[in-house]
Structures are given as C-alpha cells and as structure tokens.
Computed example of a mutant assay.
Amino acid sequence: MSRKPVHLTRSDWASDDRLWKGVLQGRDIGTGVTVIFYATEKTGVGPRWHVHPYDEIFIVRTGRALFTIGDTKLEASAGEILLGPADIPHKYENLGPGLLETTDIHVSDRWIQTDLDDPELTAS
C-alpha cells in the first residue's frame, strides 16, 4: 500500500490568524493522530475538565500552565511535555503572565472528548 505525502497550509487547520489555534483531525489526512493547537493570552483560562478514551500528549510551546491530570497537579513551562493517559480526566490553565501555547497530540484519528464540568453532564 502506497501513501502520498500531505501538505497543509495554515488556512487548512488554523482558527486564528495570529495565534497558533486550531485542529487537525488525523482522519482528514489519513493518519491515526489528531493535533490541537491551543493558545490563550488570558491568565486562568484553559481547557475545561474533560476526558478522552485515548492518550493525549501535551507540549508546552510558550508560557506556563497548571495541569491537573487525575489527582495530580503539575506546573509546566515552555519546552516541557506531559502525558494525559486514556480515561483519566484532565484540564489545564494559563498561569501567565502572557501567552500560553500548547500543541496537544491526541492518539486517535479524531477528537473525542467528554466534558465533565458541564452541569447537564454531571447532574443526575
């Protein structure tokens, strides 16, 4: 089986003209990895408490963040890499000051996420 190279431009994945923000679904290019580029300049802001049925690798490109992965809290800064194991809830937030940029690698051909702090999901 022969596969061809894929070349994407920024407009193929980016959701912001200035910041590294956007999603590249692996299934769209024929691979088993999805990449999310996250960026925020707001201190205290980040992805909410959620879980995936696959591993996620976080690469902190710029700034500082507080990660909560299960019961563990970790501070990470530019150049550090963390693993969020499958089925373990996690979140992170910008510790500031300034820009936080991460590249989040989802070991899946598509982004599958269950938000856990949504009142409609947690109410029973």
Rank of each mutant, 00 (worst) to 15 (best):
G84K: 02
G46R: 03
P85C: 09
W20N: 07
F58Y: 13
W49H: 15
I81P: 01
F58R: 00
G46N: 07
S11Y: 01
V45N: 04
I81M: 13
L24E: 08
S77K: 14
P97V: 06
E120V: 11
Y54I: 09
I112N: 10
G79V: 03
A14P: 10
D115T: 12
E93K: 12
I112D: 15
D71K: 14
K42C: 00
H52K: 05
D87H: 14
V35F: 02
H7R: 12
D12M: 07
G98W: 06
F58E: 12
H90S: 10
W13R: 07
V23Y: 06
I59E: 06
G46I: 08
F67D: 01
I88E: 11
R48C: 02
T34R: 02
P85A: 09
H7C: 11
Q113S: 15
G96N: 08
Q113T: 15
T62R: 14
H52L: 04
T31K: 04
Q113R: 12
V45Y: 07
S11E: 15
D115E: 14
V6G: 01
T102R: 01
S124M: 04
W20R: 11
V6D: 02
D55K: 05
P53S: 09
L24N: 03
I81T: 15
A14L: 11
L116M: 13
E101W: 09
Q113H: 00
T68E: 15
H90W: 08
G79T: 03
P119I: 09
K21W: 00
I105Q: 03
A86P: 03
F58N: 14
K73L: 08
I29D: 02
H52Q: 12
Q25C: 01
V23S: 08
V33L: 13
K91R: 15
G84T: 11
H52Y: 06
G98A: 10
S2Y: 02
D104E: 11
I81W: 00
V45F: 11
A39Y: 07
R48F: 02
L74Q: 15
H106P: 00
S15H: 04
L121I: 14
G26S: 06
K42F: 01
D17L: 06
R27Q: 12
E101H: 04
M1H: 03
I69C: 07
M1V: 04
L24Y: 01
K4W: 01
D12P: 09
S77M: 07
T9S: 14
T122M: 10
G32H: 08
E120L: 12
S77R: 13
P89K: 04
H52M: 05
P119K: 08
L66A: 13
F67S: 02
T9D: 13
A65F: 07
A86M: 08
G98S: 09
A65L: 10
V23L: 15
T72A: 13
D115N: 14
R10S: 14
D117G: 05
I69M: 05
A86G: 13
K4G: 12
A86L: 07
G30E: 03
R10Y: 11
L116Y: 05
